[in-house]
């Protein structure tokens, strides 16, 4: 039985909008999710059901209000919800990877360096890292001539592929993917599906949000449904 890599217990998350007179928006309540090594769980549910909120909470980007988020880090299950900032950064560095829906663009840094950065930060030699980054970008159909350019001027699809390369290159044991194929054409969708399958076979635990039913069927071992806590606005 593959080990549990990620488990939430009674996870609850809401927002208090102080700028709107302090109204409270509950989004998640009592979420209990479990993901094993090599497994891909796809979050499903209509808009507003909290899929993104759950994903961001799993990454520590949103602060859980109650409950635990247990992550297998360094061989042990560590509660991300109770961890201090340095611990969260350490978990993100070694264990937990995240591919957001849009690339956050940093001016001046070439695409190749954007991808290689994560690998170099984990101790890989610069030459090796740049080589692997190059291979990955080419696999995602980003041609050589774009590697030295900052992604700010790339198309949405190109930016997303840089984002994917950056997320996959380091080989984190747990990956969170938010709409990994959203702006991609059929060819690139296939590449990404293959990359996800390879990651799974390496034992990576994956949580994904994916609206494309074909891709979802290709990667998901399980669906995790979420229902909105309140009627959609």
């Amino acid at each position: 039985m593959a080990p549990v890599m990620l488990r939430t217990e009674g996870l609850a998350k809401g927002f208090t909008l102080h700028l709107r007179g302090g109204i409270r928006l509950p989004v998640l309540a009592g979420v209990t999710l479990q993901v094993h090594a090599g497994e891909c769980v796809v979050l499903s549910g209509p808009s507003g059901s909290g899929k993104s909120t759950l994903m961001r909470s799993l990454f520590g980007n949103y602060r859980a209000e109650s409950g635990r988020i247990l992550v297998r880090h360094g061989g042990e299950l560590v509660d991300l919800a109770a961890a201090d900032p340095r611990a969260i950064l350490a978990i993100r560095h070694d264990t937990l990877g995240y591919v957001s829906q849009f690339l956050r663009v940093v001016p001046r840094v070439p695409a190749l360096d954007v991808v290689a950065e994560t690998l170099i930060a984990r101790g890989t030699a610069i030459d090796t890292a740049l080589e692997r980054a190059t291979d990955l970008l080419l696999r995602l159909n980003i041609p050589h001539r774009l590697h030295g350019l900052p992604p700010a001027t790339f198309s949405g699809g190109e930016q997303q592929r840089v984002n994917l390369a950056r997320g996959f290159i380091a080989g984190h044991p747990i990956l969170l993917l938010d709409e990994p194929t959203a702006s991609l054409d059929a060819g690139n969708r296939t590449v990404v599906v293959d990359m996800i399958r390879e990651a799974k076979s390496r034992g990576t635990a994956i949580v994904a949000i994916c609206h494309d039913t074909d891709v979802r069927d290709a990667i998901a071992d399980r669906l995790f449904p979420l229902t909105p806590l309140q009627d959609a606005a």
Binding site: L17, H18, L19
Partner: peptide, 18 residues
């Protein structure tokens, strides 16, 4: 005070939200 992306993406204090 806290993790940068957390404070900026999920601000808790009214002033931070503002």
């Amino acid at each position: 005070t806290g993790l940068t992306d957390q404070v900026l993406d999920d601000p808790q204090h009214p002033y931070t939200q503002l």
